[in-house]
């Protein structure tokens, strides 16, 4: 079974985000970038499926400018077999990303597509579900366990009250939650080997999809600051303040 893993280049999760002074967007100049953490979990899950003999080939795909090849090389170093970059200079909406991915699904015919549940920049949490809708596939979102069983995959999902397990017909879409696995670190020989693995570049404009934006970003502002309060000296003082000053307990 072939596994397709779409990944995204985003700001490194340890970097403090700054808004541009003109409030047009977040300032990403000279900021450290990385593979989106949930996408990294997706790559790891695909690699584990291959190690278990379930997956036969892992194809990583990313949509963006030339720089996202760095993240594709990371995926190759972690164990993906080959990579596809869909080149565009534009920042595309999730729906347009899903439409491009649909074309790749049509070409590659994967048995399973594993994506991160959301990217830590736009925080949309929608590309996987949209891809599932466009391809007519079943979806197992927010996965904490993935078990392929014949022509079905059982996905245990993180839901509000606990866990839910669903059985999906293959091919299917899975989006990863944090506890699905703990991604490995790429070893130096694997990083070297990754440089020689195939990486195809396709132009986003060649797919015949209208990629015009669906929304206009009017403004980006920093969040309202919350100012530090007081340091209390004792539990007694804390309880007294909560009762009489904040009035949140009785």
């Amino acid at each position: 079974m072939k596994v397709l893993v779409p990944i995204k280049r985003v700001i490194d999760y340890n970097v403090k985000v700054r808004v541009k002074p003109d409030n047009s967007d977040v300032d990403l100049t000279n900021v450290k970038m990385a593979i989106n953490p949930f996408c990294e979990i997706a790559v790891e899950e695909a690699v584990r499926l291959k190690e278990a003999g379930t997956a036969t080939e892992i194809v990583a795909v990313s949509i963006g400018d030339k720089k996202c090849q760095e993240q594709l090389r990371t995926a190759l170093a972690l164990g993906a077999d080959r990579a596809i970059q869909i080149e565009t200079e534009e920042t595309l909406d999730s729906l347009n990303i899903a439409k491009l991915l649909q074309k790749i699904v049509d070409e590659e015919q994967p048995g399973l597509v594993i994506l991160g549940k959301q990217s830590i920049d736009s925080d949309n949490n929608q590309t996987g579900q949209m891809l599932a809708a466009l391809t007519g596939m079943a979806q197992g979102t927010f996965a904490s366990e993935v078990k392929v069983d014949g022509d079905k995959v059982n996905v245990t999902r993180e839901v509000d009250g606990g866990l839910q397990t669903v059985a999906l017909n293959l091919p299917a879409i899975v989006t990863t939650d944090l506890r699905l696995n703990e991604p490995r670190y790429a070893k130096l020989p694997d990083i070297m080997k990754a440089k020689r693995k195939p990486l195809d570049v396709k132009a986003a404009g060649d797919f015949g999809i209208d990629l015009s934006p669906r929304a206009t970003l009017l403004k980006v502002a920093p969040p309202a600051e919350r100012s530090a309060g007081v340091v209390v000296e004792s539990v007694d003082e804390l309880v007294e303040k909560l009762k009489n000053e904040a009035k949140v307990i009785s």
């Binding site: 700001i11 403090k16 985000v17 808004v19 977040v26 830590i120 920049d121 736009s122 925080d123 934006p213 669906r214 929304a215 206009t216 970003l217 009017l218 403004k219 980006v220 502002a221 920093p222 969040p223």
Partner: peptide, 17 residues
């Protein structure tokens, strides 16, 4: 209005759909 970057920035977006 919606939070982005884990609430470290607040975006105002106009839907064109």
């Amino acid at each position: 209005v919606r939070p982005i970057y884990a609430g470290n920035a607040i975006a105002t977006v106009q839907s064109l759909d």
